[in-house]
């Protein structure tokens, strides 16, 4: 008994945060997990009971005639989401790395100012920022009308409601999450290492390849994961910029809770997205252990 009090006494400092995590994170997740095994109610909600229906539903579906057939429908949605998220990560990296490098090489005052600039978009609501892209990209929008009036094209090119538009929306929203961790690791980079490598006759590219990138690796990995995680479950960009024509995972979950009226399946999908995120985080944790470099936030 006394031992127990000792333990509580020892950890009382973390009690508030433990309560926060428990009430606002673990319990909701638990509810979702429980729901995913329930039997769907025809009008939403779930009946108590235990079913693995959702698992079967991922690979097989009952067609309109109620025959069980193998179906790649959900897998297609899954791979579409993965594909779009991975492209978004790559584009974010290509855009984010030079920006982070540029910021890291400025003097301290300028650096702080530039980092502030990076965060400015977050002051405006995400929904409004995404709607603005509609005005820019649509057939009668800024890009098309400029191209037409300058005589480069005659007919508007379809930019909006495409997968490209979704990727643009994701990159635009999440690229700061790529820039900031890379900046954090480049900021501590000793410029003399680059000078040393140049003294040893490497090219510009060589210095980047063998000195800068390896040292920025923890930031690159952290940034990639920070962009990948919200992209895989994204809802706003696919709905508004993708035209809702081809589902992604986030929209599929929403559909189960609205017209699909299958809350357990929606919950199961949410659990699957969480599992993907967890796997991504585990890979990162393993990597950073292997490299012996922990990510410093």
């Amino acid at each position: 008994m006394k031992k127990l009090f000792n333990i509580i006494d020892q950890y009382k400092g973390v009690l508030p945060s433990a309560l926060m995590v428990g009430i606002f994170m673990l319990i909701p997740i638990l509810i979702i997990v429980v729901y995913s095994f329930m039997i769907p109610n025809p009008n939403g909600g779930g009946r108590t009971g235990f079913s693995f229906d959702f698992f079967q539903k991922l690979f097989f579906c009952r067609d309109l005639f109620d025959n069980l057939v193998f179906s790649t429908g959900y897998l297609k949605i899954f791979f579409r989401s993965m594909w779009i998220s991975i492209i978004a990560v790559i584009v974010s990296l290509l855009v984010g790395f030079p920006v982070a490098y540029y910021i890291a090489t400025q003097n301290a005052d300028r650096r702080n100012f530039l980092v502030l600039l990076i965060t400015i978009p977050f002051w405006t609501n995400l929904l409004i920022r995404t709607y603005s892209w509609i005005l820019v990209l649509r057939d009668t929008g800024l890009v098309n009308s400029m191209l037409i009036s300058s005589g480069i094209i005659n007919e508007p090119i379809t930019l909006l409601y495409t997968e490209g538009a979704i990727i643009l929306g994701l990159v635009y929203t999440y690229v700061p999450f790529m820039i900031l961790p890379i900046y954090a690791s480049l900021e501590r980079l000793d410029i003399r290492l680059i000078e040393a490598s140049r003294d040893l006759y490497t090219t510009h590219w060589g210095a980047l390849r063998y000195v800068v990138i390896p040292l920025a690796m923890p930031g690159i990995i952290a940034g990639s994961i920070l962009v990948f995680i919200p992209s895989i479950g994204a809802f706003i960009a696919p709905e508004l910029l993708g035209g809702g024509k081809n589902l992604m995972l986030g929209s599929l979950v929403q559909l189960q809770f609205s017209s699909g009226r299958n809350w357990p399946f929606g919950s199961a999908l949410a659990v699957i997205i969480m599992a993907i995120v967890l796997i991504a985080l585990l890979i990162q944790a393993r990597n950073s252990r292997k490299n012996g470099t922990e990510i410093v936030h």
Binding site: R62, L64, Y74, K76, K245, L247, L255, S259, G260, R261
Partner: peptide
Amino acid sequence: GIKLEAKVWESLLQ
């Protein structure tokens, strides 16, 4: 009827 509708809708948007 609702189940059939939901199936048609999902296969349409897959």
